[in-house]
């Protein structure tokens, strides 16, 4: 079967001779793997259009038996040149691609995830670096929600007491969200400021564009690190190695 869809290139792998496999997240079919023949040759028609972190329009043959389709035509929509030119932006985009590649099932259409990823990359392309971390946290929260394991933050997971009524907020990675001080007793939790919980709620539900006008304090940015460092690895049962590199770069003031 021949199909046509727009897609974002997440990763690529060397194949025999001059071919490669690209893994994309597509608008119509979710995450798909495709063979791009000759794509590793410098002058191949696929070489400039099948690079990681690119937005492309493809025509491909779906394989009947294997999970590996064949790329027939490929047109570049955007290369995200500003991301590619900047180390920190590129590593950030790579982290989003790694999350998408590792946490979404193969051949499972999910338009909302496609739109989220595309929109996040477009903003990454435009944003100044001080908005970058907030954008990553917003992506994580929205992405987890779409996959069905976003943290529950409006009330205590156990007794239902509302966030507004809480004096101290406890965050339970294993429980998947907010606990009050009473219910948090004898459980492994992290105390997080109410401001940070509210920031997470805001980032989960507001439009990505609104981050432009949002200011998140240093303390909240530090507390929200619990998402990539503990929450995502626990709930996805996957090691997201890009986060470590990203943290190292930011720590060094890139």
């Amino acid at each position: 079967m021949l199909y046509k869809t727009r897609a974002i290139v997440l990763r690529d792998y060397e194949l025999a001779e001059q071919d490669k496999i690209i893994e994309v997240f597509s608008e119509k079919y979710g995450r798909v793997k495709l063979v791009a023949k000759g794509a590793r040759r410098l002058k191949s028609r696929f070489a400039p259009t099948t690079q990681i972190i690119s937005y492309i329009d493809i025509l491909a043959y779906q394989s009947r038996k294997l999970d590996l389709d064949t790329l027939s035509e490929c047109q570049l929509i955007s290369l995200f040149p500003e991301i590619k030119k900047d180390l920190l932006k590129m590593v950030s985009a790579g982290y989003l691609a790694e999350l998408t590649a590792k946490l979404t099932p193969l051949r499972d259409r999910n338009l909302a995830i496609f739109v989220l990823l595309l929109k996040s990359l477009s903003l990454l392309e435009k944003f100044s670096k001080d908005k970058l971390i907030t954008l990553l946290r917003a992506f994580e929260l929205k992405f987890l929600q779409l996959l069905g394991y976003g943290p529950a933050l409006r009330k205590c997971l156990d007794c239902g007491k509302k966030l507004e009524a809480l004096k101290t907020c406890h965050f339970s990675v294993e429980g998947g969200g907010l606990l009050c001080a009473v219910c948090a007793k004898d459980k492994k939790t992290t105390v997080i400021s109410k401001g940070s919980i509210k920031t997470m709620l805001y980032l989960s539900h507001s439009k990505l564009d609104d981050i432009k006008n949002l200011w998140v304090g240093r303390n909240s940015l530090r507390e929200l690190e619990i998402l990539p460092s503990l929450y995502i690895p626990y709930h996805s049962e996957q090691l997201i190695s890009g986060y470590k590199f990203l943290k190292q770069l930011i720590g060094n003031g890139a």
Binding site: R41, L42, K43, S44, A47, T49, Q51, P81
Partner: peptide
């Protein structure tokens, strides 16, 4: 001076390029 957005692997470049 090959640079983006060329793409591809260096090992497959011809001598002239």
């Amino acid at each position: 001076a090959i640079g983006l957005p060329a793409g591809g692997d260096l090992e497959f470049a011809d001598d002239f390029t």
